[in-house]
Simulated scan of single mutants.
Amino acid sequence: MVGRDEDGRHAAPVARDVDWSILMAHAQDGDRAAYHRLLQEITPYLRSLAARRHRDPSDVEDAVQDVLLTVHAIRQTYDPTRPFAPWLVAIANRRFIDRLRRQGRRREREVVLTAEHETFCEPETNLDEDRDRHELESMVDNLPPAQRYAIRLLKLREMSLKEAAVVSGMSVTSLKVNAHRALKRLKKMLVDRSAP
């Protein structure tokens, strides 16, 4: 005998639903083997449900994993006196709908790239970048030693404040102050350089 889910489609066979209910009840009592068996048995069923909503096989697998994670997270909410399959299908439908909504929102924000969006590397562009890097390095070299050291550690080598404090022997507060002053001084140098 086969039951029907809320959409009127075929649900899990009743005998299998009873087995799943028993396995879930044992799993709620801490039986790991029963839980493992339950997850193995419901996975192909979830895969067939997901395939109805998703075309891409990777989306199907991701949707199945979402459902399995949700089942795991809320397994204690299952009432063993009730059928398991409708509980599972309700969770699956919610997860599938959530996934489809996320995909829809993502597609709305995506821009299809055309040939006009292509960029090609030009040697002149790289020359400007090298020149700018050399100018910035010379500006950093003109900073007072503590500020120069703070900028090199925190901004150029991208160390955390704690890492930079250990390497430099300076306190976190001193590093913050010196980095702030260095950035302020560099900004002024850049403004002065671009002024006519």
Rank of each mutant, 00 (worst) to 15 (best):
residue 34 A to Y: 08
residue 5 D to R: 03
residue 23 L to N: 04
residue 125 T to R: 13
residue 167 V to T: 07
residue 163 E to Y: 07
residue 154 L to W: 07
residue 184 K to V: 04
residue 162 K to S: 13
residue 59 D to G: 10
residue 98 D to I: 00
residue 177 V to G: 03
residue 37 R to G: 09
residue 4 R to L: 12
residue 89 V to Y: 09
residue 189 M to A: 03
residue 122 E to T: 06
residue 83 P to A: 09
residue 73 A to T: 05
residue 98 D to T: 00
residue 184 K to T: 04
residue 156 L to D: 12
residue 27 A to P: 11
residue 61 E to R: 04
residue 3 G to T: 02
residue 18 V to I: 14
residue 150 A to N: 05
residue 192 D to C: 01
residue 12 A to P: 00
residue 7 D to T: 15
residue 165 A to D: 02
residue 83 P to E: 04
residue 35 Y to T: 00
residue 98 D to Y: 00
residue 162 K to V: 08
residue 102 R to H: 08
residue 78 Y to F: 12
residue 172 V to I: 06
residue 35 Y to S: 12
residue 151 I to T: 10
residue 170 M to H: 11
residue 17 D to K: 06
residue 188 K to T: 03
residue 133 R to L: 14
residue 21 S to C: 13
residue 185 R to F: 06
residue 142 N to S: 15
residue 138 S to N: 12
residue 32 R to Y: 00
residue 136 L to A: 15
residue 91 I to G: 01
residue 65 Q to F: 05
residue 88 L to R: 04
residue 144 P to H: 11
residue 4 R to K: 10
residue 27 A to M: 10
residue 190 L to N: 05
residue 5 D to C: 04
residue 63 A to T: 01
residue 104 G to V: 00
residue 135 E to G: 14
residue 149 Y to P: 01
residue 120 F to V: 10
residue 166 V to K: 12
residue 99 R to L: 03
residue 57 P to H: 05
residue 125 T to C: 03
residue 106 R to T: 08
residue 179 A to S: 08
residue 117 H to F: 09
residue 150 A to Y: 02
residue 158 E to K: 15
residue 137 E to S: 15
residue 173 T to K: 12
residue 173 T to Y: 01
